[in-house]
Nucleic acid binder design. Structure first.
Length: 434
RNA sequence: UCCUCGGUAGCUCAACUGGCAGAGCGCCCGGCUGUUAACCGGGUGGUUGCAGGUUCGAGUCCUGCCCGAGGAGCCA
C-alpha cells in the first residue's frame, strides 16, 4: 500500500511509489503508451502509463477513461524534463472510482464567457480558476491575520437590516415576517457602535447592492472587510490601509508567486512595488492632475468615473490615496474638514493598472448636531437612525474606518479583467445560475 | 435605465451582392513507446435565438420580442 500524496507535494517523493487520488484532466494515447494529466485540487501531474507496466484490466480501463473521470493512480515519482512541471508518475496501477459521462462540456481550450458562467460549477475545476480561488483564500487569511495581530477584534455585523445605510435604491428587500427588511450594504454603522465596546474592530462578510451595474468591477453580492477605530483620524485610516494592503500583496507573492506567473500570466514585478507608504493626493490635486491629462473640462465637485480613476492611478506604481473629496459626493456620516465645509474627511484607495477603487473610508462625523443636520440634508428618516445618533450622545470620540472590496482587490492582484472570476459563484445583474 | 456589438453543430467560428448548411475541436471506431490543446485515417453531429413580413428563393433584408457580451451612470 503506497502513500496517498497531494499533487502539490509530489516532488518531495521522488523515486518513491505513491498514490494520487484525483480526476482525469486530459489524456493522450500513443499506441502502447498513454499520458494521463491528473488534477487533484492541489495541482496537475502527468501520469505515464506503458501497456506492459500495468495489469491488463487497468490498461483497458484507461482506454475508456473520459475527461473528469475520478481515478486513483499508483506509481513511482520521477523527475523528467519532458513532463509539465518537471515531475511525472510512472503508473503501475489505476483504479476508476467513477467514469465520467463522455460529454463533459468544458474542454481545455477557448470558450465564451456566457458558456463558462453557465457551467461555473464545472468551470471552477479548471486549473486557472482553482488558482484564483486559492489566492482568494490567502487574501482573506492575510487580511484577518494582519488585523488580528494589530489589535482589531473581529465582530460580526448583521446581514438583515432594518434600514438603508446610504439610500434605498440599491437595497435588496426581503420579507421579514410581513415587514420589509434589507440585505446589508455595509456593516459600518454597526461597527461604529462596536468600537465603543472594543476599541478597534472589523467585520468581514458578504454585502449586497442592487445596483444595475454591468461592468467588470461589479457584483451584486460581494465581500468587504470593514475595520473601524475609536480615537482615530483620516490619517490613521491611510496608515492602516497601506500596511494592510501591502501585507496582503506580500503574502500572496510569498505563497503563490509561481501560480500567478504560470497560471494567470501575472507580471509580479508590478506587485513587488506595493510597499508603504502609498502616495497621497488631495481631491483638489487629483482634479488638477486630470485637467493636465486631457480632462480639461472635469468639473470640481464631481465624483471620479472609471476613466478618471485609471488616469490618476497610471501616474503611480503603487496604489494611490485620494482624500478630502467634495462633501456633496460622499455619504452623510463623513466628518467635516475644519474651515472647508465643501470637502470632507474621506479617502479612496485607487489600485494601479486601472483596477479602480478598492478602498473607501474616512473619519466619521463625531458631533450629534452635524450628524442630525446631514441626515436631514440627505432626506434620511431620523427614526431609523436614533440608535446611531446615541453613539454621539454617550462618549462620542473622533473615529474612522474603511471598507476594502475583496473581489476588486483579488482581481487586481491576480491581474484579471473581471471580478466575476474572483468568487466561486458570482452574483451579477441578470445572472443567478448556478 | 441608456449606448454599442453579438446569437449558425456540444464548444470556437466560417458561409461574397439573397442562390446546395461548412471547418476545427469534442464524441465514437481504427493506428502509433514521449505526448504537452499530439498526430494520421474513418464516422457522428443542425427547428441558423423566437414570432411575423418581403421574395421564385432568407443564416443573410425588414419589424417586434428574448438572450448574451462590452461600456456608461452609481459604487467596493
Amino acid at each position: 500500500m503506497s502513500t496517498w500524496v497531494p499533487v502539490a507535494d509530489v516532488a518531495r517523493h521522488e523515486g518513491h511509489e505513491i498514490t494520487i487520488k484525483g480526476w482525469l484532466y486530459h489524456r493522450t494515447d500513443k499506441g502502447k503508451l498513454k499520458f494521463l494529466m491528473i488534477r487533484d485540487g492541489t495541482g496537475l501531474i502527468q501520469g505515464v502509463m506503458f501497456k506492459k507496466a500495468v495489469p491488463q484490466a487497468a490498461w483497458e480501463a484507461a482506454d475508456r477513461l473520459t475527461q473528469e473521470s475520478a481515478i486513483v493512480v499508483r506509481g513511482r515519482v520521477r523527475a523528467d524534463a519532458r513532463a509539465p512541471g518537471g515531475y511525472e508518475i510512472e503508473v503501475t496501477d489505476l483504479e476508476v472510482v467513477h467514469r465520467a459521462e463522455p460529454d463533459y462540456p468544458i474542454q481545455p481550450k477557448e470558450h465564451g464567457v456566457g458558456f463558462l458562467l453557465h457551467h461555473r460549477h464545472l468551470w471552477i475545476r479548471s486549473p486557472r480558476q482553482a488558482t484564483i480561488l486559492r489566492v482568494r483564500a490567502t487574501v482573506k487569511r492575510a487580511i484577518c491575520d494582519w488585523l488580528d495581530t494589530h489589535g482589531f477584534v473581529n465582530v460580526d455585523t448583521p446581514i438583515l437590516t432594518p434600514a438603508a445605510v446610504e439610500g434605498t435604491t440599491t437595497l435588496f428587500e426581503v420579507d421579514y415576517f410581513g415587514e420589509p427588511a434589507y440585505l446589508t450594504q455595509s456593516g459600518q454603522l454597526y461597527n461604529e457602535a462596536n468600537i465603543f465596546a472594543l476599541g478597534k474592530v472589523y467585520c468581514f462578510g458578504p454585502t449586497f447592492r442592487a445596483e444595475k451595474s454591468k461592468t467588470r468591477r461589479h457584483l451584486t453580492e460581494f465581500w468587504m472587510v470593514e475595520p473601524e477605530m475609536a480615537y482615530a483620524t483620516l490619517e490613521d485610516v491611510m496608515e492602516v490601509t497601506e500596511q494592510l494592503v501591502a501585507h496582503v500583496v506580500h503574502e500572496v507573492l510569498t505563497r503563490h508567486r509561481h501560480e500567478l506567473q504560470a497560471r494567470l500570466n501575472r507580471d509580479v514585478s508590478r506587485l513587488e512595488k506595493v510597499t508603504p507608504p502609498f502616495p497621497r493626493l488631495s481631491y483638489d490635486e487629483a482634479v488638477e492632475l486630470l485637467r493636465r491629462k486631457g480632462f480639461e473640462e472635469f468639473p470640481w465637485g464631481e465624483d471620479f468615473g472609471a476613466p478618471h480613476e485609471t488616469a490618476i492611478s497610471e501616474e503611480f506604481e503603487k496604489p494611490v490615496f485620494v482624500y478630502h473629496y467634495p462633501t456633496q459626493c460622499k455619504a452623510f456620516y463623513m466628518e467635516e474638514v475644519p474651515g472647508r465645509p465643501d470637502v470632507c474627511r474621506s479617502v479612496d484607495l485607487l489600485a494601479p493598472e486601472g483596477y479602480g477603487e478598492i478602498v473607501g473610508g474616512g473619519q466619521r462625523a463625531a458631533s450629534l448636531e452635524l450628524l442630525a443636520r446631514r441626515l436631514q440634508e440627505h432626506g434620511l428618516p431620523r427614526d431609523a437612525y436614533e440608535w446611531y445618533l446615541d453613539l454621539r450622545r454617550y462618549g462620542s470620540v473622533p473615529h474612522a474606518g474603511f471598507g476594502l472590496g475583496l473581489e476588486r482587490t483579488i482581481a487586481w492582484i491576480c491581474g484579471l479583467d473581471h471580478v466575476r472570476e474572483t468568487i466561486a459563484f458570482p452574483r451579477m445583474l441578470e445572472r443567478m445560475y448556478p
